Amino acid sequence: MLAEETHMDPQNTDLSANAKMFNQAKTLRLHTGNLVNRSRLKRKCPSSPSEELQDCIKATLTDWFSLPKPTSEDFADTLDCSIPQATDAITPEEREELKVSAKLFLCEPAQSSIREAVEMACQTLAVSQLDSVIIAPPGPPEGDSQTLAHLQPAWEELEALVRCQQIAAIGTSDLDKDLLEQLYNWAQVKPSSNQVNLASCCVMPPDLTAFAKDFDIQLLTHNDPKELMSAAAFQEALQEGTQDLNMANWRLEWVLRYSIIVKSRGIIKAKGYLVSARKVSP
């Protein structure tokens, strides 16, 4: 009597490996790849930066789940969810023609996150230095206003990265004239730019404009919300992207959004997100 032939479902095998990898991991690092080229994301026009990030996390995890997984039972503590063919590595020959800019959104106050994010960006893009980084630190406690003391720890970490030449210029986000002046007078490495959210300010405040002009600080506009991604939105993106694995214990640490611009033509060659999350005790 012939033995009954059995068939393994590759999807179930991959799902089991994926589940084991997520269960073992303590840190999640995700790279969306170049959004300019990713067809899955080009078809949809997000209504906000928050929606764009949520769509990117879902799509990247979905694509990553379709990749072959190792058969080893020894999985790493840090899980790298990136799509190899979607990377934006810059060759040495083209580096001089490109400007690499980033905005770093800190979801938690840990200053080590700044160095981790910048190092991951440099490694991912194959560069030794980012041309500019704008910092968006976590908001102050409920009911408090932002102060210089609140900004100083993050700024000192950025200054250290400038001194070791991993960043060329550093900037701020959503500072009014008084706070920008306080930061400028205190800082060893002066802010080169300050972003202003035109959703809350239709016209640049005259005092901010005058101060920026006097001290050669570039004023930029943006439409990012105060909280780029809520905990609930992050959980939703994880659940949908991981095919409903239990992801309730994962917390977003930081998000770095980068753009690579061709200097001579002023066009965006590449843009994307780097995301870090960590597992917390239930």
Rank of each mutant, 00 (worst) to 15 (best):
L179I: 06
K190S: 04
A149P: 01
F234W: 12
P191V: 00
K226W: 02
A187G: 03
M229Y: 02
A212I: 08
Q218I: 06
H150R: 02
K190A: 10
L148Y: 06
A169H: 12
P191A: 00
L228A: 08
I134P: 01
L183T: 07
P205Y: 06
N194P: 06
A212C: 14
E181C: 11
R163H: 13
L130E: 04
E156S: 11
P137Y: 03
M204F: 12
N197M: 03
M204L: 15
A212Y: 00
I134A: 01
T147G: 06
T124N: 11
L220P: 03
A136I: 01
L130S: 04
D216N: 15
V127S: 07
Q182K: 14
V133T: 00
Q123I: 09
V127H: 05
I217M: 03
H150A: 10
V127P: 07
P138T: 03
D178I: 05
P137E: 01
E142W: 06
S132Q: 15
Q129T: 14
A169R: 12
H222L: 04
K177H: 15
T209Q: 14
Q165K: 12
K177Y: 13
M204Y: 11
S230Y: 04
K177F: 13
W186L: 09
L179A: 05
A199D: 15
Y184R: 05
Q165D: 12
S193Y: 07
Q152E: 12
Q152I: 13
N197W: 07
S200T: 14
D176K: 00
R163G: 03
C202Q: 13
H222G: 05
A160F: 03
N223P: 03
K226A: 15
C122P: 02
A168Y: 10
A160G: 07
I167K: 01
L158E: 03
I167W: 06
A231M: 14
N197K: 09
F211K: 00
D224R: 05
V189N: 03
A126I: 01
P205V: 08
D207I: 07
L208Y: 03
A169S: 11
P205A: 08
N223H: 11
L228E: 06
K177T: 15
